[in-house]
């Protein structure tokens, strides 16, 4: 195997997956987390538990349900295929969706914590000063929870880099499409190629460590 398909292709794919997942998830969960902090509606605790379910289930269980849901007979898979003409399973889009579900609680929790920390009176004075709840969110809440957003982003990024079971079930191992770093390592180990597995693993070590140091600094602020 050459250097490109051995290291660069899975590394590039993993980074691409982590980046897309992080960006989309942060954009989607920021309003959701805000809603969970401030809105009161029936079934809220049920809804919140559902969103945090990926935290409590083994990745293979999440992967299995997603496989059913995203398959040609599943609701998500069928709709996607009807709209775009291509399947969800064993594609980059498929594993992106799967890793978004898998990392949802990791995006939600730090953001929720950051939004909860914001002084309620700050929001009230924003309203009295004429801001709608939407513009107060953009002009007051978001600028004052940047550390929470950053912590969310880093956690999701790392969690996606480390995702394995879910991605293997939903995406398989198609080089250049779904064969991400963690799967490449698994396959190297399976074929007793410890040198290859060692090189791949060693690359992730400092990345994870560095990001965690950053998260710690952000949380302490």
């Amino acid at each position: 195997m050459d250097m490109n398909s051995l290291i660069l292709s899975p590394l590039y794919l993993s980074l691409q997956l982590a980046l897309v997942t992080t960006t989309t998830l942060i954009l989607l969960t920021a309003p959701l987390a805000y809603l969970l902090v401030h809105a009161r509606f029936p079934g809220k605790s049920f809804f919140e538990a559902l969103l945090n379910l990926p935290l409590a289930l083994p990745p293979t269980v999440i992967g299995f349900y997603l496989l059913i849901l995203m398959g040609p007979e599943g609701a998500a898979g069928r709709t996607w295929e009807a709209v775009t003409g291509s399947p969800l399973l064993f594609t980059f889009t498929g594993i992106t969706l799967a890793s978004m579900v898998y990392s949802l609680p990791f995006a939600l929790q730090p953001m929720k914590a950051a939004f909860e920390k914001i002084d309620r009176r700050l929001l009230e004075s924003a309203y009295v000063l004429g801001l709608t709840p939407m513009s107060a969110f953009v002009k007051v809440v978001l600028p004052n929870s940047l550390h929470g957003l950053a912590a969310s982003a880093i956690l999701v990024f790392l969690h996606t880099l480390g995702a394995f079971g879910v991605l293997l079930i939903v995406g398989g191992s198609i080089p250049g499409e779904t064969r991400v770093f963690s799967i490449a390592i698994y396959e190297a180990v399976q074929s007793m190629n410890y040198r290859e597995a060692g090189i791949l693993s060693f690359i992730l070590l400092p990345v994870g460590f560095l990001f965690l140091l950053l998260v710690n600094r952000l949380i302490r602020r």
Partner: peptide, 14 residues
């Protein structure tokens, strides 16, 4: 509150 155009200052105003 947005539509009332009231000025409201209280103790330890944030």
């Amino acid at each position: 509150p947005q539509s009332r155009c009231v000025g409201y200052v209280f103790q330890d105003y944030p």
